[in-house]
Write a protein that binds this DNA or RNA. Structure first.
Lengths: 334, 334
DNA sequence: CTGAAAGCGCTTACAG
DNA sequence: CTGAAAGCGCTTACAG
């Protein structure tokens, strides 16, 4: 039976170059105290043998794996890929490998963390919506995403600020009766969006509101849209806490013969890729997801670089942006 | 300055349990030849010290890292997350960690592979569109995605079959003049879709076709749609090689006052999330992306488990599915 | 059933 | 500038 060739080790290179293993190590790692000739000899020996140092062996002695893990919940397609992209690009810029693992609410986080022990230099954790933060090993470097903890650095989207900004935008357009389709109560981000909406309207006298329940699904948005259509006093604008709910709401309005934005304005939150292709295109709140991931990774890399000095916990909030499209039109004053 | 606590090692556990390191290792790894009492003593000592074995040390001696890498191109949001999800879930089921890295066309693949040496048991590679397959280290286990190679196992979507099936669907609906909006020529999948379309119409006598250029972007689909509208003999159906191009095409038709599907039928390929929310909802070809990733991972895991016996190269094709929605209607025979 | 010892493939003070 | 040696934290024949 044929066998896969065994990889060359530093010992093979040393023998071939006629030097010690220590010299091979120094030559290949760019240590200054190596003659140009020696280095050249080592390099060609290494090349001839296709030598690549073993990451495992190196990690064992240097106590660095050049790897970080991202533990992420099962997210919607676009958000997940944006987040991974942001983290991955930043990781590569730092020379770090990225291990990803999704974690469901009933997954065994402790077991996962144990299996990661000695394989990573730190981790980025985004707990599943509504889940408690898992206990992290005391010696581990970690950064939190969309969650906060007194002991760890964390990065969160400013859901409150985004909802406030969008609500102010609607108010500025003249809307005085606004409905809000909320996300699930157990989701911290959804709760913040609702709070942002409430805070913004509280600051605007004479505005009436209506809050409808939703769960971020298109279906729940559709149901909310139907409920809004049936309302005795119909709002002039609807702010859905998630774009998918806005999509469902839009369909319900179309079915009821309501034109958006002429009869009723509609805004969403998330800026999913579909938002700009809807008819009318959806006004919404964009979140810097990739940026969020990149910031977390860079902070983690900094903390790792700091060595065994404990990280100073700190909370960071990243700003959102209102993206104005056709689904919200100015309401002329009566 | 405060310090992060150093993690306990197997030596600490041994001392605490009053046994040798060998016994600790055996007890913790479920080796049968350990007394229940000894195992219990070791386990409680390990628990008290929060001991978790070092992955690096274990990898060095066992020559297994329990980790595989996925080298993926910069994909569109949904495809990337589906693929990662498929691979990740399958990896977890096998007890493997997943390292992900995106690789652009001008990224230094060899350097990346070198930095991965000794950190992974194998890899899944999906080369960027139009890029040559990188040289893989001879000793590495690898599986290819959306590419083929004589020496490696590979998994590919059946683009040709999907395009053929969709074309047949259009033919069966009575369409005799069909336009095809092609993807970029350098993309192997796009070329296969075009070939599938051509093969299907070649088998149907008396059918006229028209092939327009596109690059998978909405913009190029929009341009193609405008060109189709301006055609002297307008086709009764349009098959866009990608959903985003279908979206652009649909917009061009709407601008020209053409109703889909009454005036003209439209089909896409990919089944992006948006497809079902379009008005009319888009008939398209769905690809089992998560399944593709899962199959590749499982094959890789099998090859790894086979030890140093070289893998038998083989090509696998995963089937697609025509998803019929409102954008294609039956054409009554004249 | 358990222990002492060797060794996985590197890096790094310590000498010279 | 270079080498011999120790050691990172494990696992596994080999004895007993």
């Amino acid at each position: 039976v044929a066998r896969l060739a065994a990889a060359a080790t530093i010992r093979d290179v040393a023998r071939r170059a006629g030097v010690s293993m220590a010299t091979v190590s120094r030559a290949l790692n760019g240590h200054p105290s190596v003659t140009v000739e020696t280095r050249a000899r080592v390099q060609s020996a290494a090349a001839e043998l296709h030598f690549t140092p073993s990451g495992a062996a190196r990690s064992l002695i240097t106590r660095r794996t050049q790897t970080v893990a991202a533990l992420l919940p099962e997210l919607q397609g676009e958000v997940l890929s944006e987040l991974i992209r942001g983290i991955e690009v930043a990781a590569r810029a730092q020379g770090l490998h990225l291990l990803v693992s999704s974690v469901g609410r009933d997954d065994d986080m402790p077991a996962l963390l144990r299996s990661l022990s000695g394989r990573i230099d730190g981790l980025i954790v985004m707990p599943p919506s509504g889940a408690a933060l898992p206990a992290l090993p005391p010696a581990s470097r970690a950064v939190l995403l969309e969650a906060a903890d007194a002991a760890l650095p964390s990065f969160q989207v400013d859901h409150h600020g985004g909802a406030t900004a969008m609500t102010r935008h609607l108010l500025a357009q003249g809307h005085r009766h606004i409905a809000f389709i909320a996300g699930p109560a157990h989701d911290a981000g959804a709760a913040e969006r609702l709070r942002g909406f409430r805070d913004a309207v509280a600051a605007a006298p004479g505005v009436t509101t209506q809050v409808l329940d939703g769960d971020f699904s298109e279906r729940s948005g559709h149901a909310a849209g139907q409920a809004i259509v049936a309302l005795a006093e119909r709002p002039s604008a609807v702010f859905a806490a998630g774009d998918l709910m806005a999509v469902g709401c839009l369909a319900a309005f179309a079915e009821a013969g309501l034109d958006v934005p002429r009869d009723i304005a509609l805004a969403g939150f998330d800026d999913i890729p579909m938002a700009r292709y809807l008819r009318p295109a959806l006004t919404t709140v964009r979140m810097p997801i990739a940026e969020l991931g990149a910031l977390a990774l860079r902070r983690l890399a900094d903390d790792i670089a700091a060595g065994d000095v404990p990280a100073v916990p700190s909370r960071h909030t990243v700003a959102t942006e209102v993206v104005v499209r056709a689904s919200c039109a100015h309401v002329p004053r009566q």
